[in-house]
């Protein structure tokens, strides 16, 4: 009954009157989501008001920007390139720092109903622990460790490349809280034997994939465009890569929830990602073309697909192609 009411409320708000028997709710570990769209990390998630706008736009959950112990200004412009077939960014983990952001997160927890996943970054176990403690104190519903930012030395990919260190980080984080712990991994970290170690260490779910390390040159200027020279590639061009990674993770670990991220621009893209094994989908750079309406567009589109194809619950769709 409760779920129906929630759905009714949701559909009325989102203008989806077709069929209330369609269940769009999903879960990742202990988090319950009203629909499978999640704001991906690094996008807009640095203030309560921005997170609230994304909730109002219809997202099922929110991931904050990656928070580090100290504030980071990020890189000087240019930090973003529109390639036509995708986007390149090197924002440089710009964020207000754990102490400032914890106040923002407390405020967000009072104003926002949907789950908030805090993306945390660090260059050492101590830094990860410091940030995690602040975020958990402020009510974060889950943590996502950033093991894969491709453009900040000593963070992200540099940490994620050290398998032993990552295992230790996971173990220590799990020792201070029972809240779900996810890892955001890159294409290069999707080796099954490595993920198995992380899961054994206590990881509850996997977010795949982060942006892919990439570079853009402007030949008229005879110059790289990003001030940091290299950045992370996102958008439509990485979707097939993300699909393959999610497919393989689901095939090996069907019980580990996956947040499929990478180039999702439409309901069809989201359905593809769910069919290969994602329990939820991360939305990021699609905002460039479609702005915040993308969350409702994708949710409604998934619902329409389910109606047309005889699916009642999103759970029937997750990993469907593995069971054909």
């Amino acid at each position: 009954m409760y779920k129906e009411l929630k759905n009714l409320d949701y559909f009325c708000k989102m203008g989806f009157p077709e069929d209330l028997s369609i269940d769009l709710a999903t879960s990742i570990s202990k988090l319950s989501l009203r629909n499978p769209t999640i704001l991906a990390s690094g996008i807009l998630g640095s203030s309560c008001s921005l997170l609230k706008r994304v909730e109002d736009a219809g997202a099922g959950a929110l991931t904050t920007k990656t928070i580090t112990k100290n504030p980071r200004e990020g890189y000087v412009n240019p930090v973003f390139v529109d390639l036509g077939y995708g986007y390149l960014n090197a924002i440089g983990l710009r964020n207000p720092g754990a102490d400032n952001f914890s106040k923002e997160l407390s405020k967000a927890k009072k104003n926002i109903q949907i789950p908030i996943i805090t993306s945390i970054g660090g260059s050492s176990i101590e830094e990860f622990m410091y940030v995690a403690e602040r975020m958990l104190e402020s009510g974060s519903d889950a943590l996502e460790i950033n093991l894969s930012c491709p453009h900040v030395e000593g963070y992200g990919l540099d940490i994620g490349s050290d398998i032993k260190l990552t295992q230790q980080i996971i173990k220590q984080l799990k020792s201070i809280s029972s809240k779900p712990l996810f890892a955001k991994i890159s294409l290069h970290q999707s080796r099954i034997d490595i993920l198995e170690k992380y899961i054994d260490a206590g990881l509850d779910g996997i977010s795949a994939i982060n942006t892919v390390k990439a570079l853009a040159i402007n030949i008229k200027a005879l110059s790289p465009i990003l001030s940091n020279i290299v950045g992370g590639l996102s958008g439509p061009c990485i979707k097939p890569i993300a699909l393959a990674v999610v497919y393989e993770i689901y095939r090996e670990f069907p019980d580990i929830p996956i947040i499929g991220v990478g180039g999702i621009q439409s309901p069809e893209d989201a359905v593809e990602m769910i069919l290969v094994g994602a329990s939820a989908v991360g939305i990021g750079s699609a905002i460039v073309r479609k702005d915040l309406e993308i969350f409702t567009e994708i949710t409604r589109g998934i619902g329409k697909f389910m109606l047309e194809n005889g699916f009642k619950s999103i759970r029937e769709l997750i990993g469907y192609i593995h069971r054909r």
Binding site: L44, S46, S49, L51, K65, G74, I91, V288
Partner: peptide, 22 residues
């Protein structure tokens, strides 16, 4: 303004979360 397309949130006007660039 950093990204200029409404992704990074750097130019947000509080407390409404209005992105100046977008």
């Amino acid at each position: 303004i950093k990204c200029g397309v409404g992704l990074c949130g750097s130019c947000s006007v509080e407390p409404l979360g209005l992105r100046v660039c977008r």
